[in-house]
Design a protein around this nucleic acid. Sequence first.
DNA 1: GGAACTTTGTGACCTTGTGCACAAGCGCGG
DNA 2: CCGCGCTTGTGCACAAGGTCACAAAGTTCC
Lengths: 232, 232
Amino acid sequence: MAGQVVDGAGQRRIPEATVARLPIYYRALLETAEAGVGTISSERLATLAGVNAAKVRKDLSYLGSYGTRGVGYEVDQLVHEISRELGLTQDWPVVIVGIGNLGHALANYRGFGARGFRVAALVDADPGKSNRKVGGLAVDGLDSLADVVAERDVTIGIIATPAAAAQEVADRLVDAGIRSILNFAPAVVSVPEGVSLRKVDLAIELQILSFYQSRRPDLGETAAPVAREAQG
Amino acid sequence: MAGQVVDGAGQRRIPEATVARLPIYYRALLETAEAGVGTISSERLATLAGVNAAKVRKDLSYLGSYGTRGVGYEVDQLVHEISRELGLTQDWPVVIVGIGNLGHALANYRGFGARGFRVAALVDADPGKSNRKVGGLAVDGLDSLADVVAERDVTIGIIATPAAAAQEVADRLVDAGIRSILNFAPAVVSVPEGVSLRKVDLAIELQILSFYQSRRPDLGETAAPVAREAQG
DNA sequence: GGAACTTTGTGACCTTGTGCACAAGCGCGG
DNA sequence: CCGCGCTTGTGCACAAGGTCACAAAGTTCC
């Protein structure tokens, strides 16, 4: 079978769990490259990424055979392959909907641009906010969402509204042609097939921590599981 | 076998994936209760939570047999059982370390208190910020972290610093006796066994979305997987 | 050129999680 | 009291993911 996992379109099929780890490797590799190191072993990369070495090798093997036995991986090449695989070679304009506390913080967040993500638009339902500028960008009204998305080629939508508005906003984003949504609102949002949706929920994270903390026998033996790797 | 999965301490062992979903059920149930509904079926709860009904039933069965066949689950009872299981019956004082954009937003975030989490302290390495008050709370210096944690019985630490400071802060939190950490910094942080660590990373989420978006054949057939349910 | 050493790539196995399907259990109506 | 309809609880089969261990393949040194 030549051992390649391939989907219908002829691309290698990369497991979801692997996809969720690629960005972690990517970041570690960028730092490694910056330090002037040219080659890295799966063992070293595993340490940097906080996973085990076999997992690193298996993950990377989905991208192809870019390692050299006895040596390791060439850092620059890996960076290139991963960024290509993740689609980071292109620009991804992002719209943030809901300019409250969180939306405000996200709009000012450095670390977007570096990875090819760019906040291209800010939208809020409150017309009062349309006057303000946040992080050098004007806030548009919710009604102009579709226009703004079209004009600025926005591909990714971030929902930072209160829970009650989340579904409505998601629907509008989808209508506007957005196919990738990141939801920060504490609400379950559903989208049609073909649209990717991920969620980040502070309250849920805390409640999970609370679960393990309250079970902890206080210096007892039941080890609490460590970080889920996906937020994912 | 009487069918109960039990760990060494005699508690039912609840799978990680289930733990990650309990908060979602919890929120849905609170809303349902608020609407004055007394009873709910697994089917209905599944719809609200965005999962399938069998999963709901299996998840809830780990808590015990609280459903009534032919009827459903009593909402109030479920709310009570889940909140007990998640440890939400007690108060969890939280310290936020790093009062930049994100830390600021988190400090002002409503939705903590409601679920028993309370921002009890704010800490920042920059002494210049120690003057400011954020959300009615004074910002303490990093050096007083241990004192503040001890005085105010803080049990959960949130890292909202730049990546470079994250590990250092984590170490200090652990030294101060914190056993549950939520990391927002874009860095891999390691903690000793017995300490729970979860991470939330905006850039990673976007990169995952980017992966699926760039693979999308643009109205083709390869369906993108929908929201991972855990962010956990 | 060959032996010793290093590191990758992967097959095999195990654990966890998911979904189906159905028997058991409960309430209601007659 | 009995049968019917609805809903839970769970056994089972399968899919996904993780870990181990090792052969294959490369490097280094003599």
